[in-house]
């Protein structure tokens, strides 16, 4: 099968509100895909459905050939579906090395080992350090996460997600709120991720989207509105219409049209 992640007729209602409306979607292996849409389009809800934070009202989710719609979040993560969060979700009392060591142990299925202290598996420690170094966190290995600057915390979000070598990674606005000076580092980290890892970028920032994505889906009011290559999407007048009023985004479309 060519797709790593697929949905069929995915629905999610909140009371009377339809947050995700009949989404049938496919993410190919090794994809460089972007999911865009105006504010309140239900992008994060969609990610929460895919990763199991929310249960769908109806519809199916296939990951790596299996229907995972009823799986709890942790099982999907173990199967190789990773994500980052729009708002940092970190362990503020941990150090980066503890955070990564923990994530790696879990990925290796050693998370329930209670009889040995952490750090005895040299391989885990070395790999943790390697990942942290690669992502530019080598100088803060043993600093408390809560004390790290925001940009570093953002990088750590990504480091945790890639530690388990996922087959697919959903990046929810990875550069949101990061100061201009530190943005480039995050972009480079994302571009440097292994080619076989399917990436889906949920993003509002069109500069980032057009730089990174090979294909784009547009989500509007919970439903898939348009799909295609970046050039097609940029030309599509309907998409432009959707973004009417969000001047910054409009500007981007103007520039590319």
């Amino acid at each position: 099968m060519n797709a790593i992640l697929q949905t069929k007729g995915l629905m999610r209602m909140f009371g009377g509100l339809t947050a995700t409306n009949n989404v049938t979607f496919s993410l190919p292996r090794g994809a460089r895909h972007a999911l865009i849409g105006p504010n309140g389009a239900g992008k994060t809800t969609f990610v929460n459905l895919l990763t199991g934070v929310l249960a769908p009202t109806s519809g199916d989710i296939f990951f790596d050939g299996q229907n995972v719609a009823s799986w709890p979040a942790y099982r999907r993560a173990r199967a190789g579906l990773a994500r980052t969060f729009q708002i940092n979700q970190l362990f503020l009392d941990f150090t980066p090395i503890e955070t990564l060591g923990f994530a790696l142990s879990e990925a290796r299925g050693e998370g329930a080992q209670f009889w040995r202290r952490i750090g005895t598996h040299r391989g885990v420690v070395d790999e943790s350090v390697d990942i942290l170094e690669r992502l530019g966190l080598g100088d803060v290995l043993t600093r408390r996460v809560g004390l790290l600057p925001y940009g570093k915390q953002r990088l750590l979000e990504i480091a945790i997600a890639v530690a388990g070598k996922p087959k697919a990674l959903l990046l929810d606005e990875p550069a949101a709120g990061v100061p201009e000076g530190e943005r480039e580092q995050i972009l480079q980290v994302i571009e440097g991720l292994p080619a076989e890892m399917a990436l889906m970028l949920i993003e509002h920032d069109m500069e980032l989207v057009f730089r990174f994505a090979k294909s784009i889906s547009v989500l509007v009011q919970g439903a898939l509105f348009a799909e295609g290559e970046p050039a097609e999407i940029a030309r599509d007048p309907r998409v432009k219409q959707v973004y009417l009023g969000e001047s910054e985004v409009e500007h981007h479309f103007e520039a590319r049209a």
Binding site: T51, G52, V53, P72, A73, Y74, R75, A77, R78, A82, R83, F85, Q89, L90, F91, L92, D93, F94, E98, G101, F102, A103, S105, E106, A107, E110, G111, A112, Q113, F114, W115, R116, R117, I118, I160, A161, G164
Partner: peptide, 21 residues
């Protein structure tokens, strides 16, 4: 132990702990 640190992680942020697996 790894088990112990996973408990502290859950206490710190259960949402993230689940997302790690």
């Amino acid at each position: 132990s790894p088990f112990g640190i996973s408990l502290r992680a859950i206490k710190g942020n259960a949402l993230r702990a689940r997302a790690i697996g």
